[in-house]
Structure formats: structure tokens, C-alpha cells
């Protein structure tokens, strides 16, 4: 299955709606809605609300993260915003500021 890759040199100003996996290396400003997994690699800058399935965050996210599955903040991640997911892991070294809502 194809996936959308937003490369390192690309900046997208606007909404992205994807029916598939999204891997972000570049910059997104606006809104990111994916049906499947979202991977925000190190070096990526996401100034948007991110909605999707399983998420792995290793870059900088300024915005709310809503996941239908799990959210993994890896070391190097910098998240400023609320996270809503059923499962969450925050690795040592990840920076996080916001609410966590695990649908309890």
C-alpha cells in the first residue's frame, strides 16, 4: 500500500487528508488528518492538529494529537498540545506539554 511521504525540504501550508499512512519529515502547518498510521520523524515540524491511527512522534508537534490507536512519543519528540489516545508511551528524552486524555 502506498504511503504519503512529506520529505524534508517540503512545507505544506494547509490541510492534509490522507487515506493511508503518512510519514512526515518536513514542515506542515494547518491540519493533518490520516486514516492510518502517522509517523512524524525527527526534524519534522508539525504546527497542526494531527488526527490519525497509530502515531509515532519523534519530531516537533505544536497542536493536538488525536489518535484512534496508540501514540508513541520517542526521544527527541517535542510535543506542545493535548494528546487523546487509548494508549500512550512517552520515552525518556521526549518533551511534552499538554493534557493526556486516555478515554478512561
Amino acid at each position: 500500500m502506498a504511503s504519503t511521504v512529506i520529505g524534508a525540504g517540503i512545507t505544506i501550508d494547509g490541510e492534509i487528508t490522507a487515506d493511508e499512512d503518512v510519514v512526515v519529515h518536513g514542515t506542515i502547518r494547518g491540519k493533518l488528518t490520516a486514516k492510518d498510521a502517522v509517523t512524524i520523524e525527527q526534524g519534522a515540524v508539525v504546527e497542526a492538529d494531527v488526527t490519525g491511527g497509530a502515531m509515532v512522534v519523534a519530531g516537533a508537534v505544536t497542536g493536538n494529537i488525536t489518535s484512534s490507536d496508540r501514540v508513541d512519543l520517542q526521544s527527541g519528540a517535542k510535543v506542545v498540545g493535548n494528546v487523546k489516545a487509548s494508549r500512550i508511551t512517552i520515552a525518556d528524552g521526549a518533551q511534552f506539554k499538554g493534557n493526556v486524555d486516555m478515554d478512561v
Binding site: A2, V5, G7, G9, A18
Partner: peptide, 18 residues
Amino acid sequence: AEVTVIGRGTRVRGRVVG
């Protein structure tokens, strides 16, 4: 990933620069 791929099921409503 040097090449950015906007996949088949993806819709971008906004500018793309880079």
C-alpha cells in the same frame, strides 16, 4: 526521503513549497 510523495488517497488543501 528525498522525494516527497503525496499518495493516492491523500488530499492536500493548501500550498506546497519546498
